[in-house]
Amino acid sequence: MSSTTRPAVYSPRSTLDARPEHSADSPVSIHAMTVAYARKPVLWDVDYDAPSNALIAIVGPNGAGKSTLIKACLGLIPRAAGTVEFWGQSYKHARSRIGYVPQRESVDWDFPVSALDVVCMGRYRKIGWCRPVSKSHKLAAMEALDRVGMADFAKRQISQLSGGQQQRVFLARALTQEAELYFMDEPFAGVDAATERAIIDVLRELRSNGKTVIVVHHDLQTVPEYFDHVLLLNMRIVASGPVSEVFTADNLQKTYGGRLTLLAEAAEAVARAAKGS
């Protein structure tokens, strides 16, 4: 519905009535989304309403479309069909409230910028076009670096950081955006124990501040420990909901099919989740 045909006075309620497929309360509401690469569908008819103020894991086998789901939500790749709304608004209107941590491999780490420069990039929207990065924004960026334990490395060129440190720089960049909803693509991939702890501390801090974080996650073992909600994905959504209800051997079997090693791992994780609850 275009804005010109809307009634002159309308409340969120009336917008919601016009589009019952989206939830206006949800930080991200995906409806009937299909994404295809070269005419081959990667995601098929995905419907999902994320709960607010939660840590949500997207879990699924390689090629299940986990990263694609995030990128399609953010408009980084085109959708073949379907719509995505954030708090009942289009991405364009909600953009400043959404943060993104891409996969570490997605950039050239030999690029001549320092850790601080990279974190400052998270403030570019606030700074605006064609203006230099002012001191107050640099201070905000330093603060974010400090939160992930990287303040001492601010001046380092990014290729001189370890993989875990690079990941923390990316996390700091997302933090300094001061968003309400974060998408993170495999932040735990290939990081050291200290980084993993630093990341999970930050995620919990975000949750206690009322934010929502959606994380592509590859380690089934840590799902019950780290996350509240889980979205099991394999081209379609297999199941989604609170970890205690949805993260079951049966659902994992459906998600991963006959991959035995993974299933053994999953069974162990499920058992531990059951013991914990």
Binding site: K71, L74, G75, L76, R95, S96, I98, G99, Y100, P102, S106, V107, D108, F111, V113, D117, V118, M121, G122, Y124, R125, I127, W129, C130, R131, P132, V133, R173
Partner: peptide, 18 residues
């Protein structure tokens, strides 16, 4: 600033509205 972010990380540039 815009050239730097777009050259370094096109995804983040786009998310930042550049």
């Amino acid at each position: 600033k815009e050239l730097r972010i777009a050259s370094f990380d096109a995804g983040i540039a786009t998310v930042q509205g550049i």
